[in-house]
Amino acid sequence: MPLRQLAAALLEQGSNTLLKLDPEHLHLLKPLTGQSLQLVITPIQWPLVLYFSATQIDISLPEQQLAEDAVDCTVVVALSALDQIRDTNNLTKLIKADKLDLQGDLKVLQNLSALLSELDLDLEKILTTYLGHTPAQYTLAFAEKAKTMGEYWFDQAQVTVAEALVEEKKLVASAMRIALYCEDVTQVRYQLDRVEARIALLERQAAQQVEK
């Protein structure tokens, strides 16, 4: 069973169910209709492609990053900065910090950010429809607690995963560089020893002159 396609199908189903919970959300898709956006999260390099139409979002998880001209906009973003791209005011800052690279039509990303921020789901209303009033409130209170714990865990995990991946990548890619680095450190240490000896010598000479 192709797992990548299964994951994409589940993700697509989930996103569209959320989007269609309130028919008013569909108008948010209008500015994006006919456009496509590729999101590549580094350092893991997992591409996620979104194709927008008037009634739904199609999601694909290709094996490799698609060529620039295959989609309208490609966003390459560091895992640690993923949260921040929702606010388009952060984009310039992130690009300067080398955490974001944008190719193609920036408007697609701006429209998507607008959709995400406007997609303010009224969970209580939705749950009340399905469960009734009291169970809905209990569920929400529980969800709120779980969310706080989840957010804490996610923040920790995100930092750990990002760091681990970056470190892992560095380690795997640069065993050679580490060897060279050790060599450099040894050289620097010799030079420092030499400088230290020279300073000591100069100090001794200076002291002898003062004595004279």
């Binding site: 396609q5 694909s60 060529a67 295959a70 989609v71």
Partner: peptide, 18 residues
């Protein structure tokens, strides 16, 4: 429902572009 996954795999393998 597995035919949907087979079809998705076909579409991804086609490498279609805009």
């Amino acid at each position: 429902g597995i035919h949907r996954i087979w079809k998705r795999f076909t579409i991804d393998s086609a490498g279609a572009r805009k």
